[in-house]
Structure formats: structure tokens, C-alpha cells
Design a protein around this nucleic acid. Structure first.
Lengths: 152, 152
DNA sequence: CTCAGTGCAAATATTTTGCACTATG
DNA sequence: CATAGTGCAAAATATTTGCACTGAG
């Protein structure tokens, strides 16, 4: 899937869909365009609210295609709807601010090395892993008034 | 599996509730008793089905109390309802078989060490983390006919 | 006796699906 | 112009809440 990675390291969402043999339609462009505008991770509901002219089902269907294509990461936050973020690098992990809900990403070779050493301890074949680090981000550390975006 | 659980390491669920000042009732005992019988991780629906005489709301409320008490871990599987498993050791991580859905747990000091070294790279204060390893478990490796329990 | 806890059913939240219609390739 | 894709509304799924009743302490 090295095909559609642009300079910044982020994946072109429209191309990711096209690579899977999906048509380039107005609704899909609206969804991918909106996602690319967002800096933060987002929920399906976020997109539906931002794109009232795109049917809810189409938003969900497009997100699913993007996750299947590996262009989006699904982040099952502990409560509420899962969030999604653009997969900017091939394999990475996420930081989630527990104050404001901001999602960041990082890569650390040691994590992968640990995985290899775990292989001995685990009773089966490792086929993947997921890791999230919960933080209080710098912005929230400096701001006593931060409000948790993801609360409901 | 090196991460096998010592009996003394598991938390008594009824006591965990009592410690929080909650009453010991028939409904709660039914829920905790059933959870203790189960070896595998389970969903809220599982319990409701197994305990038809306990109201659905009570099952959910009891699970929430147990999670708050730290006696259960909530595992947000990528699709479908979250699963829960007894927190047998203080801090640990989970293995999830992608074939049959079985959940195991392990502890590895290197994981914690990596976390400390990550502290430099991350723009904020680390307040927690979560890690899941996806595997094909030994039983499924030896059984071509394994059916994924968590499918829907 | 008092109020925490319960069961039920309704409400809420999230996601998927059936289907008639639209528009891409 | 064939059929992938769409929007809508209904269904399915998952969880929470309001409320009158029950039972633990």
C-alpha cells in the first residue's frame, strides 16, 4: 500500500478508495475532504453533523471503506462512539489526552522490539497489536479551564 | 503461558463491591457469581442471557461498579460490544485471539520500561496506557474448524 | 422504617440494512 | 445504460434512565 502516501507521510484518502476499485463520487469526496481538513481525530457523528448533505449511511460506509483500506485508524475509546484518525505512518500508536480528547500519534522502535521478546511468553502466534497511551497534553497542562470534548 | 494466574492474585468481586460501600444483594451476587464461573472474557449481553432473572439494567449497573472498583477490565474490541474480564493482577495487558475471541492476559516488565523511555518523546504527562496483542491462540492453531465466537 | 437497589419499559445512542432512486464509468 | 452508489427511514444493536416497587440493614 505504498502507492498513495504523499510527502507529509499521510495517505491520500480519495486515492485509497480508488485503489480499492471504488468510484470517485461527490459524497465520498465530501467525506474524505472533510476528514482531511480536520486535524483531530473524529467520530462518525462529527462527520454527519459537518456534512448534512451526505446521508448518514454513506458516511458510515465511507469510513468503513477507509478503515478497510488502512487509511484510517479506528480508536475504540473506552466510552462512547469510537474515534477515527488518519493513518499517517504505516505502523504507529496513539496518545489520547484524557482532558480534551485530542489524539496524537507516535512511533517507537522499542515497542516493536518488546513485542518480539513477548513472542516467547505468549501461547499462540502474534498477528497484531494495539497500544494507546493516555496523557494530559501540554495544552491542557497549561490550561486549567480545559473542557473534555468527548464527554457526553 | 508464562502469564498464568496465581489463585491469590484474583480479586473477590463481591468484596470489591462491598469495599465501595455497596450492599450485598441477591442480584449482585448472581452477577458476580456468574462472572467468577466464567473463564473467558464476556459481554454484558452474555450475562443478561445467563441470568434471565436479573434485570438488564442491574447487570449493566453492576458491571459498571466492578469496572469502577478496578475488579473488571473493560476491553474495547474493535467491533461489537466491549468485553470484560476479571482483573486478576494489578496491571497487565490482554491477548485476544482473532479466531475464537478468547482473551488471555500477560504482564511484562519491559512494557513498563518502554513507557518510561517514551516519556521524553511525548508532549504531555503520561497518565495511563493500554495494550492489546492480537494472536491466533494455540487451540485455534491446532484446530482448522475454529469458529470466531465474537462474530455477529 | 428508610432509602439503596431492583425490574421493567421507554428513551437514547450508535450503526446497519432494505429499497427505490441517481449518476458514475 | 448497467450497476455501483446514494439517501432515507426502519431495523438492529447496545446501553442508560425514569419510576414505582422491593428488600437489606
Amino acid at each position: 500500500m505504498a502507492a498513495s502516501i504523499v510527502e507529509s507521510g499521510s495517505i491520500d484518502l480519495s486515492n485509497a478508495l480508488e485503489d480499492r476499485g471504488l468510484r470517485r463520487t461527490a459524497a465520498r469526496s465530501a467525506v474524505t475532504g472533510r476528514i482531511e481538513q480536520l486535524n483531530d481525530a473524529f467520530t462518525a457523528e462529527n462527520l454527519c453533523r459537518d456534512l448534512p448533505d451526505v446521508g448518514r449511511a454513506t458516511v458510515y460506509r465511507t469510513i468503513r471503506h477507509l478503515v478497510d483500506a488502512g487509511a484510517l485508524c479506528k480508536l475504540p475509546i473506552l466510552d462512547g462512539a469510537p474515534m477515527y484518525s488518519i493513518a499517517r505512518v504505516d505502523h504507529h500508536h496513539h496518545t489520547i489526552c484524557v482532558r480534551c480528547g485530542a489524539v496524537g500519534e507516535f512511533r517507537h522502535s522499542t515497542v516493536e522490539r518488546v513485542l518480539r521478546s513477548l513472542e516467547k511468553e505468549i501461547d499462540g502466534d502474534i498477528v497484531g497489536h494495539r497500544m494507546e497511551i493516555f496523557i494530559t497534553c501540554r495544552a491542557c497542562l497549561g490550561d486549567q479551564h480545559a473542557i473534555k470534548k468527548t464527554s457526553r
